[in-house]
Design a binder for these strands. Sequence first.
DNA 1: CACAATCAAGTTGTGCACAACTGAATAGGG
DNA 2: CCCTATTCAGTTGTGCACAACTTGATTGTG
Lengths: 162, 162
Amino acid sequence: MTPTPPPTTGPVSPSVSDAELLRLDHQVCFSLHAASRAFGGVYRDALKDLGLTYPQYLAMLVLWEHGPQPVKAIGEQLRLDSGTLSPLLKRLEAAGLVRRERSPEDERSVTVHLTDEGAELRERALPVPRRILAATGLSVEEILGLQQLLGRLTGALDGAQG
Amino acid sequence: MTPTPPPTTGPVSPSVSDAELLRLDHQVCFSLHAASRAFGGVYRDALKDLGLTYPQYLAMLVLWEHGPQPVKAIGEQLRLDSGTLSPLLKRLEAAGLVRRERSPEDERSVTVHLTDEGAELRERALPVPRRILAATGLSVEEILGLQQLLGRLTGALDGAQG
DNA sequence: CACAATCAAGTTGTGCACAACTGAATAGGG
DNA sequence: CCCTATTCAGTTGTGCACAACTTGATTGTG
C-alpha cells in the first residue's frame, strides 16, 4: 500500500511516514520534558529544607566541587548565560550563601565565593543525592547508561544548532 | 557522627560514599537538565517559522492528535496545570490557532478547539520531527530505548513525590 | 431543598531560560 | 598610541513552571 513516502533526509529510516513521526516525536520530546520536570519536583522536595531551588543547587554544586570562580566559568559548566545566572547568584548572595567580588586583575569579571554558611550547607546537602537516586528506581548502571546517552544527545543537539 | 557509612536506603549500592554521590548526582540531574534545554534550543529553531514555542507545539500536538478537548484533559496529557496552560492557550488563541468555548453541559469546563488556521498548521509542522530526529544523531532504536527508560523514570519520580 | 465539599479555570507571585541589548573594561591591529 | 572589536556582567522583556489562592459551577448529603 505504501508507494514509498518521500526520503526527505539522511540518517532517519525513510520507511516511517511524517505523520507517524509527528507522533513518535510527541513521545520523545515529551518524555524528556516530562522527566526533567518530574526530576525538578523531587528535587524541590529534597531541597526545601536547604532553602535552595534546583538550579541554585546546581550552582552550589559547582562551587562546592571547584571552589571560587567567575560567573562565566559557572555559566560554561551549567550551560547558562548571564541573563539567568546574574539574578540567580544575587538571590544566593541575598541568602548569605555566596559573595560576589569584582576581580582586581580584570574589572569586567566577577568572582563568586562561598561564604562560611554556603560551605557549611554542603554537609546538609550530602544526603540529597542518595534520596534522589532511590526515587529514580533505576540501578546505578542504568543511571550511568542514561547519563552517557544524554551526554551524546546534548552534544549532537548543541552541534546541530546553538 | 556515624563511623560506619550509613546503609540509608535500599536499591542504591551503599559502597558509594555520599561525597561521591554528590558528584554522580551532579552528572545525572545535570545531564537531563542540559539535554532538555538543548532539545528546547533545536525546537526553537525548527518552530520559529511556525511561530510556536516548544510548549505551545506540545499543546498543538495534543489537539492535532486527539481533537477538541477541555483544558483539564490537555493538562493531564502534558502534566501541566491551569496556571501554565491558561496563559499559554490564551496566546494560542490570540495567534488565531485555537478557540476556547465554555462547555454548555458543564459551565466550569472550557473546551479548546482548533481553528481552520490551527488545523492547517499541522501540514507545516509535519517535517519538524524528522529534522529533530536527525539533529539527535541517535538511531530510532536508541530513541525508543531512551523513551522507555525516561517513561519508567518519570513514573518512579512521580510516584516518589508529587 | 439547603449547604458544605469538590472541581474547573483563571489569577497572582516567584523563579528559571533565553534573546536582545547596555555599559564598562580589556585586547589587538594599524 | 589610538581606536575598533571583543569580552564580561548585568538589564529588559517574553514565556514557561509551579504553588497558593480566587471565583463560579456542580455534586453529594443531610
